[in-house]
Design a protein around this nucleic acid. Structure first.
Lengths: 142, 142
DNA sequence: TCCTAATTTTGTAATGAATACAATGTTGTA
DNA sequence: TACAACATTGTATTCATTACAAAATTAGGA
């Protein structure tokens, strides 16, 4: 974390560790709720500040995958994501990295400086496909 | 539009035509502001309703590219997008479709039904890269 | 160790995109 | 023409996120 030029604090460390330990791509609120019991003075604002700082410096990634809220990923190695529009679950998608780079290289507009490439799948996961009982969509549009 | 099982109305037609005519990937509010002068009874809610209906039926695409708001695209042929984090401009990225399909095929989690694949680049466009005077970021995180 | 400036955390208030809801208007079809 | 289904509208609400300012903490020099 210091390697990203970010000063370490109890709160920042807790957020970082949570994101590395949990591969669920949590939202800011989920992180807050998870950490609050062990850091009772914790403020939601701190979570937002911390996530913004970490994402700006590239220590984590902010996922623009869910129109309701941002999700965060502690894994900065290039990979894609699948969002289930029924239950909201987000899962990693591993790419053939050379193929991915071949596809994405030199694709951005001329002269643009690319900072990130995101690949997002949306659909219905296998679990929701089967348990189709009381279907309550998490999202209706993609 | 009827081919998507959507009843046509003055308002829906206006939204659809606006999206086809303007390749700028506008937000709901931009569409509202553009159409309001010619349809003075128009309501923001109608814009939201219409965009949701059109996107659900696949007549347009909702772009999850900007954490501030959704953007919409009247072009449903598969392609990617570049978002400038400085000025907010969104530009199309044409893909080598066979390569894209090769990369994305069978990548989703087992048993999942994929509805859409989105490829998003973020960075600084050439214009903002040069005119670096009063740099006020549109986004700070990706 | 103490001091001070810089940074971080915190709580509250504000913002703003999007939705909920109910009333009104419109359209298709019998 | 009548009525049911559907669309539009305006207002109120929700809720993720940011703005802001005060309080707390930290780093580094004297």
């Amino acid at each position: 974390m210091e390697s990203y030029g970010i000063r370490v604090s109890l709160q920042r460390l807790a957020v970082m560790e949570y994101l590395i330990a949990h591969k669920t791509h949590p939202s800011a609120d989920e992180i807050f709720s998870a950490l609050y019991p062990s850091i009772p003075t914790l403020s939601r604002t701190t979570i937002y500040n911390t996530l913004n700082t970490l994402a700006e410096q590239g220590a984590i990634r902010a996922l623009d995958i869910d129109p309701r809220q941002l999700h965060y990923d502690g894994d900065t190695v290039p990979h894609g994501h699948f969002l289930c529009m029924s239950c909201g679950m987000i899962e990693d998608i591993a790419f053939d990295v050379p193929k991915f780079e071949e596809l994405t290289r030199n694709r951005a507009p001329k002269g643009a400086a690319v900072r990130s490439v995101q690949v997002t799948y949306k659909g219905i996961c296998s679990r929701c496909n089967i348990e189709n009982n009381d279907y309550r969509p998490y999202l209706t549009t993609d």
